[in-house]
């Protein structure tokens, strides 16, 4: 399956991926409204890890053997037939077990809504927003 891969040598730590991820997962999908008008604010599912000059964006790896799926106490996280690790917000109870077990630190806690937020590979787009909007092509969406 296609996954988002980071090219650490090209990541400039601008964090525009975070900005556009948040926008994509907002209600309005309007960058200004999403950041200034929507409460609770949507949460970016990608996080840039940085220790200058090294930086790279981390999001759910959609693992072949996802420990979060095994650990989820309500069955909210599953692996679908395409290989994508999907998260059902309805079922999520905010126990943070997936946060605890994920080796990549990918699931994020949405404290306002008491739900986990994780990368869904932007189902409404052909290419995930983070990849498309990266100004230095540090993220690629491809099959490996």
């Amino acid at each position: 399956m296609k996954r988002v891969y980071t090219k650490e040598e090209a990541c400039i730590g601008c964090r525009l991926c975070e900005v556009h991820c948040l926008t994509e997962h907002s209600r309005s999908k309007n960058i200004i409204k999403a950041h200034k008008k929507e409460f609770p604010r949507a949460l970016s599912r990608v996080l840039v890890e940085e220790l200058r000059p090294v930086s790279f964006a981390v999001q759910c790896r959609h693992c072949d053997e996802p420990v979060c799926v095994e650990a989820c106490i309500t069955g909210a996280i599953t692996k679908d037939e395409s290989g994508k690790v999907v998260h059902d917000e309805e079922k999520c109870v905010g126990c943070w077990t997936c946060v605890l077990v994920c080796p990549h630190g990918a699931p994020r806690r949405d404290l306002e809504r008491k739900k986990v937020a994780k990368c869904d590979l932007c189902p409404d787009r052909e290419t995930p927003a983070c990849v498309e909007m990266c100004p230095n092509r540090a993220l690629v969406y491809e099959e490996r």
């Binding site: 090209a10 990541c11 730590g13 000059p53 230095n136 540090a138």
Partner: peptide
């Protein structure tokens, strides 16, 4: 712009592919 610099943090801004 990562052009006239040797600072590794700034230099990364110019992806040689691009």
């Amino acid at each position: 712009w990562g052009i006239a610099t040797q600072d590794p943090y700034l230099e990364k801004r110019l992806n040689p592919d691009v």
